[in-house]
Design a binder for these strands. Structure first.
Lengths: 235, 235
DNA sequence: ACCTGAACACCGTTCAAGT
DNA sequence: ACCTGAACACCGTTCAAGT
């Protein structure tokens, strides 16, 4: 269980050094905007510096390396999520929170590859993680199963968003993929048939998967009261 | 629905030009070995050329660009999967096939980031895709729901493997993450508790998620005979 | 058909120096 | 505490040239 976080701020024991963090935020905000505009492929420290009208090395005053910078951008993207209430029926809570997480990802398409390529999950996933674990444990799940369920939900959500984003790269061609790849329709008939959906509804696909997961989880609730679980004591 | 494939071979209408494809395979095989050994971070065309005792530009005789090369490596990794029989109970088939897909990914940890970063899914996923769609349609699912279920399964499987691989990067620290990120245990109690699992069993986590998904799918089977479905006619 | 070697336009990052 | 400018060790990719 390792998660990425910001750098431990050094010095400045008084007055909170507000300018330092503010500048880092401005930097990350500009970087996120740049990466959403031009795509992660074209992003570089030198371009970011140029965009800010500053020398490349000035960036290193707020960031320790490019990897740190990319992690910061990925985190900033997820941090922008606006979640609904964490209280009430657990299925509603999980559905709403992972919908919100997905929405935040789709709002920053350029940052999604950074979330994947980061060697740690951004620290901003702590919030949906906490809500998920808490909701599932309240309903009777053990700590380990709750954690497993969280991994299921988060990998599905991020993976789905990632796949959706890639469609943005090139045209919306579809059946052509089958021909391009010289797939003989006889050996892959179902794939060929599926390739005909050239206007795939990713929202519905996500909702379908989410429903499947929630249904599966509901059937797994340990013992009593598998309906709403509002009345269950915690732990 | 877009998937990546190899380059359409040009010319050589007779005798199959076996040397050309053989060399490309050797190149990809060497690249895959190199990326598994040194990690995707250190990989470059120049290093690969050096490993092969050849000039960097020689690589471009078998590959059109670095992106094409990386896609080829990712595809080669997945292509190595050995799948069980596609016949029999649909839950057994799906479980076995996605276990095999996951195994192939974990056998080539360095290639997993390439699978994610590729702008198309490797063409080698056609095989598990075909099997999944076929099995689910035989059991009564419509084409679209079968495709949605496939996306659920594949994003979960790849995402889970990806997360597991990242643990390989640094040490196996765990609770330290909580302190590193300055998470107040009071605001994230469940996350703090979960961070105590420093020897997380990813196999069990994957099996849990897979079971949840299969249970959820089973509950979604359209109408009659939701047990095995061997006797159902297709379409 | 395949490989070479030089060159071009970029990278991330260091270092010493300025204020 | 923050920024600069030059330099270093790398990149992917082009081009003309060899066989």
């Amino acid at each position: 269980m390792r998660l990425a976080g910001r750098h431990r701020r050094r010095g400045s024991r008084r007055s909170a050094a507000r300018h330092e963090t503010l500048d880092r935020r401005r930097l990350l905000k500009a970087a996120l905007a740049l990466i959403d505009r031009d795509g992660p492929q074209r992003f570089s420290i030198r371009r970011l510096a140029n965009e800010l009208g500053v020398t490349p090395m000035a960036v290193y005053n707020h960031v320790s390396s490019k990897a740190d910078l990319l992690e910061g951008i990925a985190n900033a993207a997820i941090e922008g999520a606006t979640y609904p209430s964490p209280h009430g029926d657990w299925r509603r809570v999980l559905r709403g929170w992972f919908q919100a997480l997905r929405r935040a990802c789709l709002d920053h398409p350029g940052a999604i590859p950074l979330i994947e390529s980061a060697e740690r999950l951004p620290a901003a996933v702590f919030r949906p993680m906490e809500t998920t674990l808490s909701a599932l444990q309240q309903v009777g799940f053990g700590v380990e199963d709750a954690l497993r369920a969280y991994f299921l939900l988060v990998t599905f959500t991020l993976g789905q968003a990632s796949y959706q984003i890639k469609e943005w790269g090139r045209g919306i061609d579809a059946g052509s993929a089958v021909k391009e790849n010289r797939i003989s329709g006889t050996t892959f008939p179902a794939v060929t048939q599926a390739a005909m959906f050239h206007d795939w509804d990713f929202d519905m696909s996500f909702e379908f998967g989410l429903s499947i997961i929630l249904t599966g989880l509901e059937a797994r609730i340990p013992s009593r009261s598998r309906s709403d679980g509002r009345e269950r004591s915690r732990r």
